[in-house]
Design a protein around this nucleic acid. Structure first.
Length: 489
RNA sequence: GGGGCUAUCGUCUAGUGGUUAGGACGUCGGAUUUUCAAUCCGAUAACAGGGGUUCAAUUCCCCUUAGCCCUACCA
């Protein structure tokens, strides 16, 4: 059975690159009716960040990426790694190294100065058993190093990159157990993947150069290595590895900014993979069916937000007003909103809406097509929800629209008079009536509709005047026109 | 310095030994229009360079270049 895993280290908020790795691993497992394991690689106490695990769990859940097993914590499995390291020691595939940090640093500096590849010089490999014994009784701290094989070629087939070949002579003797007793990534990773029955290791390209170390470890243990798939990196606009310096990288940042999970999933799925067709909208379920590891790209992909915006708009527009309203509601907890009559609307109201809720839903529907992110919703909704829109004379009188004070007054008065005669306030009725008003006054559309729109919304940009009137309803429309006329005097 | 990976429009990408090198986002223009969006239509723009192989290379091979990743008792 196919089994994949996502193995992040809790050093901060889950970033979008990690999310994509998790997604691909998850998709691959699901589409093969396999299992997906979550493992927390917390073997470096120095880099542990409080709350990182919670953020990780919360984020994966929010995106609907569910794991079948775990989360495992490597920090709770140190005995296992120690035992395996000792087995390696016995078999001669590893050795104890007592070198101090100072010596290693100096060695490296010397090597670099001599234009040589910085690698451990295996000084401690020459230690006699007696010398080792002496150092241990003297309680000298030590690490356990992997002894890379001396000859041959390390070969493996990468699902994304094809046949790979490394000369073990170019690969350093990696530290396996640190002097604090914790394993390094390289050991813990191999031991766990084997013990947990992982069949496919899907991870970022940054791990490609250390894969020969891992293969050598599998060989040393006498285990069959899993199949590897190294994913291309997500890049900054300048093509460097995606980093915090150049914008938001935490998945949560995008949730906060008002991107929908389906848009984010769709977007990152397409960053490094494509279906080979011109199809471009994919739900998580679609992806499980259509994803294919063979079609994963080799080259890195720039994390470019323009397409995310477009996708988000698409998904926003495809929501029902009720669903959209539910998403917007938590974002409306602002001071001005608390002072409106709508502050007490709850999510459950949308299933059995009263008059107030119906109005709210209508307002949501009216702004729907111009929403790019959920974060914009409160501002766009504001004029619907507050009693009185702001009055801005400079905005109301618009030279380009040929609206002066006299025109505005007349337009508002006459529109009000005509709208007052309506018994029904449908979009069609409103439109026909006002078209008549415009004709009768001999004005251009804008000369009537602009002042009306500004009177009703107080905004520079808004949905169309007819829509606004219909959504506001007769009572509010009348009241707002009066208010505006008063202030215009 | 060493090892490795990569290379098609600005971006995400399709694609083939012979194609008008396709799509999407963006940008620009037009339609619609009361503003802003949405929508529809159109345009723009790419095979990194040099050698081979071949009747023919964007495609296959080699070299160069560029970019990136790794080179920790981080992951």
């Amino acid at each position: 059975m196919i089994k994949t895993r996502f193995a992040p280290s809790p050093t901060g908020l889950l970033h979008v690159g990690g999310l994509r790795t998790a997604l691909y691993s998850y998709l691959f497992a699901r589409q093969n009716k396999g299992e997906f394991v979550l493992r927390i690689e917390d073997t470096d106490q120095k880099r542990y960040v409080e709350g990182a695990v919670e953020n990780l769990l919360r984020t994966l859940k929010w995106f609907g990426i569910e794991y079948d097993e775990g989360p495992y914590f490597q920090s709770k499995r140190t005995e296992i790694y120690k035992k395996h390291a000792e087995a390696l020691l016995e078999k001669g595939h590893a050795y104890k190294c007592f070198c101090t940090e100072e010596r290693l640093t100096k060695m490296r500096e010397d090597q670099i100065a001599k234009k040589r590849a910085p690698m451990y010089d295996r000084a401690c490999l020459k230690l006699t058993p007696e010398e080792i014994e002496k150092k241990i009784s003297a309680e000298e701290p030590f690490v356990i190093r992997q002894k890379m094989p001396s000859g041959g070629t390390i070969k493996f087939k990468d699902l994304v990159r094809g046949d790979m070949e490394f000369d073990p002579k170019t690969v350093d003797d990696q530290v396996l157990i640190k002097s604090d007793g914790f394993p390094t990534y390289h050991l813990a990773n191999v031991v766990d993947d084997h013990l947990m029955g992982i069949t496919h290791v899907i991870r970022g390209e940054e791990w490609l150069p250390s894969t020969p170390k891992h293969i050598a470890l599998y060989n040393a243990f006498g285990w069959n290595p899993p199949t590897f798939a190294h994913l291309p990196l997500l890049l900054n606009p300048d093509k460097t590895k995606l980093s915090k310096r150049q914008g938001d990288v935490a998945a949560e940042d995008y949730m906060i900014k008002g991107y929908l999970k389906e848009a984010i999933i769709n977007f990152i799925a397409l960053l490094g993979w494509n279906p080979g067709t011109t199809e471009e909208f994919f739900s998580l379920e679609d992806l499980i069916k259509k994803f294919s590891i063979e079609r994963v790209q080799k080259a890195g992909a720039v994390f470019n937000l323009e397409k995310l915006d477009w996708l988000n708009g698409h998904y926003l527009r495809s929501k029902t007003p009720e669903d959209l309203a539910k998403l917007i509601l938590p974002r409306l907890q602002t001071k001005w909103f608390e002072e409106t009559a709508f502050a007490d609307i709850e999510e459950k109201n949308f299933d059995d809406p009263d008059e107030k809720t119906i109005y709210f839903l209508k307002a949501v529907k009216t702004i729907q097509t111009r929403l790019k992110t959920l974060a914009e919703a409160p501002d766009m909704l504001k004029f619907f929800l507050i009693e009185e829109p702001p009055f801005d004379l400079a905005l109301l009188l618009n030279e380009k629209m040929k609206v002066d004070k006299e025109t505005a007054t007349k337009a508002l008065e006459e529109s009000k008079k005509d709208l007052a005669t309506l018994t029904e306030f449908t979009l069609q009725q409103v439109q026909e009536t006002l078209t008549g008003t415009i004709k009768r006054l001999g004005l251009k559309n804008g000369q009537v509709l602009w002042p009306l729109r500004v009177a009703l919304t107080g905004e520079q940009y808004s949905p169309g005047t007819f829509e606004v009137i219909e959504s506001l309803g007769k009572e509010r429309t009348m009241k707002r026109i009066d208010l505006c006329l008063d202030k215009l005097q």
